[in-house]
Nucleic acid binder design. Structure first.
Lengths: 248, 248
DNA sequence: AAGTGGTCTAGACCACAGC
DNA sequence: CTGTGGTCTAGACCACTTT
């Protein structure tokens, strides 16, 4: 951990110990230099971190101030997490069943959205995500594993050093990082309401009339390359999608 | 404009003039110091700005690299905009029809979510949002105004200096800022799929089987107070909801 | 070992707020 | 004027990658 990081922690500790009220002025940068025994640059780095976390704000010529509500904001899907982690964050135990792994030619939309070279093949993973530990009141007798999502993820075959026959990792993000050296950084998601498809009704036991949320996503890695083309169908019965929206 | 800012611009100019390909290594920080005649700190500030804009990425020990696509990222609903602005951003002309303004007791959920004091009344606005200028191919003959959303917004009556009988402003955000001194800063949104309600089918001419996206929202002002309790039902036919999701 | 980016220090001057 | 945060310089050492 860097000096600036630990300085940030120390400043946070100071705030809580002094029981500073919301809106009040913090000590000056010079004061923190002496208090923490670090240079001004390091103090400023720490303050920048706190500012980015929306805990403080700074006004040139006036000082540094504590924001009104240092309350934590529960994060929503504006934060890109694996479905595994999302399920866990709801206090459920994630399960994965691989339905199929297949190699196909990309659709024209895939070619366009992933900027694929000619002749590239796509590997498609179809998986059912479910969870144990659904709230007892909602549990169907005799079944304690609930359908959460149906995930169809496609990636260029050339990403894989060897053909993937099994995925032992819990999340696709982890698999790509471990085996392909691909670090997923962001996704552009289009969200729309859908009905369960015939395939899902017949093969997955999803109720016929159930409404699902379709998240169509293009995932980009840390080099800005489009990597994953995915369609995730969520049952919003157990998992609710929250979004934190900020005014520009 | 700071030196770092202009250094950033110069680096951008350099990238375009040299026609650097995506993924290629940029000159080192030392090279930029000499090229731009500034200190390393300033070069790094400029590179940090470019990194935050996701145009470049840096790897310790290796170098600085151009990302694959230096394209701008279209913003999605993680940015809190008024529905008016959202409709405009799709190149359509927004229309608003006020259906009803009524004063009621809050529901228990409103009391809890908005932290309402005893005896507080709620003002509820029901509005239909539509748009002219839908793509011609999708236009119903004789009708060139398309249903976009049905909005039910509730606010504490005590916010209003005088009872609102009319809203001439286009967006609720503008009305609150002008007449109530309330500046909306963020919203916590829960998104779920729904069917058109009977009321919407019979009164708004929404097709019976149409799937809608329900955005249930609590809006907070710049003092952290919960202010608006709203349910917006969107037809995703003309308006698509995009979200930019970022890895933490 | 050499070269890269990551972090930290010490010191300076500038821009803005308030007395 | 003083004190605040904002910016910039020069120099040092560290961590990681490549030769």
């Amino acid at each position: 951990m860097s000096l600036a990081q630990s300085a940030k922690e120390n400043i946070l500790t100071y705030i809580t110990e002094e029981e500073l009220s919301p809106g009040v002025a913090l000590p000056t940068e010079a004061a923190f230099m002496e208090m923490l025994g670090v240079s001004r640059h390091t103090v400023r780095e720490a303050l920048i971190l706190l500012e980015q976390e929306r805990l403080i704000y700074r006004v040139q010529g006036k000082g540094t101030f504590l924001k009104r509500k240092p309350q934590q904001i529960e994060s929503g899907i504006e934060k890109l997490e694996s479905i595994t982690d999302i399920i866990r964050s709801f206090g459920l135990e994630p399960r994965t069943k691989m339905v199929k792994i297949e190699v196909q030619d990309p659709t024209p939309d895939m070619v366009r959205r992933l900027d694929l070279p000619r002749g590239e093949k796509m590997v498609t993973f179809k998986r059912v995500r479910s969870a144990q530990g659904a709230p007892a009141a909602d549990r169907t007798p005799g079944v304690d594993e609930e359908f959460i999502a149906y995930c169809v993820d496609s990636m260029p075959l050339s990403l894989f050093p060897s053909f993937p026959t099994e995925i032992e990792e819990e999340s696709m993000f982890q698999y790509l990082a471990h085996h392909c050296g691909v670090v997923i950084e962001r996704a552009v998601t289009t969200i729309s309401p859908t009905r369960a498809t015939y395939e899902m009704v017949s093969e997955l036991g999803v109720e016929q009339d159930r409404l699902l949320l379709l998240l169509h996503q293009i995932h980009y890695d840390n080099r800005g390359r489009p990597v994953i083309y995915s369609n995730d169908y969520f049952d919003t019965h157990f998992i609710q999608f929250k979004i934190n929206r900020l005014r520009p």
